[in-house]
Design a protein around this nucleic acid. Structure first.
Length: 271
DNA sequence: ACTTCGACCTGTTGGC
DNA sequence: TGCCAACAGGTCGAAG
């Protein structure tokens, strides 16, 4: 479900409710995620205060003085701030109770997500250490895309979705960015010029920024941490629009599978 | 070093 | 109404 804009929207949503708040208790209702939740979490987090909520790629980092809770939402997970009277639902795996009487609740129906508890620098955690650059920083450049692509024959769409190069670009925003850049998603990564990578780099930054402003994309189940939908779905130009008219040229949007992911593009506007 | 593909899960949707 | 297959916003790791 969530790509960078949805995770960032979640980060902004939960921060005000939990930063500088003392944890009373932790309730784990289902330990089964991509990796089992550590028992140490429920023993060690109570009594600690959340100092900050950061994001690295699609991971959220909740830091205390000595530890960090690393959270990934997977395909279908979400975090909500709820009051104690909010009914527990199926797949509510974890709940953190704060001194301010608010709960942070983690729900993950497909269990593709992760809740990791560590006392090391989270950026050095084995799950995060190999992540690529943040797309909304000056480290993400056309030169980076170009240089690393010279030996890569994969479709450019798969290339930009590879998190060891650049993080946060998932299926929706890969499609949208390639449309904005006018690049055919099927083209080999090593066949794209530096000039066109400049356009792609700019497009990725722009699409992600606009999606964050809109509060993310709600296709079906994504909700902001207050339960309300994000509004970027209305701005999607190609994703999910197979057979509909291209907003630029009017031709029909096509779809194909690339690396087992549905891919949407306009064959007239994207070459 | 790179590519491909199956695996991990549950819920929803659409066809018959 | 039920059944079943296909598909969904993401990674990971094995095998070639």
């Amino acid at each position: 479900m969530p790509e960078l804009p949805e995770v960032e929207t979640t980060r902004k949503g939960i921060s005000p409710a939990i930063v500088d708040q003392l944890v009373d208790s932790v309730v784990i209702r289902d330990y089964r995620l991509r990796w089992p939740i550590s028992k140490a979490l429920e023993q060690q987090l109570p009594g600690q205060t959340i100092n900050s909520v950061d994001r690295r790629g699609k991971y959220l980092l909740l830091r205390t003085d000595t530890h960090c809770l690393i959270i990934h939402l997977g395909m279908s997970g979400h975090l909500r701030i709820v009051t104690p009277d909010t009914l527990v639902k199926k797949h509510d795996h974890v709940e953190i109770h704060f001194n301010n009487k608010l709960f942070l609740r983690y729900n993950a129906p497909r269990r593709f997500g992760a809740v990791l508890w560590t006392n090391q620098d989270p950026l050095k955690h084995e799950r995060l250490i190999k992540l690529g650059v943040e797309p909304l920083t000056e480290k993400f450049t056309a030169e980076l895309l170009y240089k690393n692509s010279r030996s890569r024959t994969v479709p450019v769409k798969s290339y930009i979705m590879n998190g060891s190069l650049v993080v946060g670009v998932g299926n929706i925003y890969a499609c949208e960015s390639l449309f904005l850049a006018g690049i055919d998603p099927r083209k080999a990564a090593n066949s794209i010029s530096l000039k066109r990578y400049q356009r792609l780099c700019d497009s990725i930054k722009l699409v992600l920024k606009q999606a964050i402003i809109a509060g993310g994309t709600t296709l079906k189940d994504f909700r902001k941490s207050d339960g309300k939908p994000g509004y970027f779905a209305q701005k999607l130009k190609v994703y999910g629009r197979t057979t509909e008219a291209c907003v630029t040229c009017g031709r029909k949007i096509k779809s194909i599978m690339i690396s087992q992911r549905n891919t949407f593009w306009c064959s007239a506007c994207q070459r």
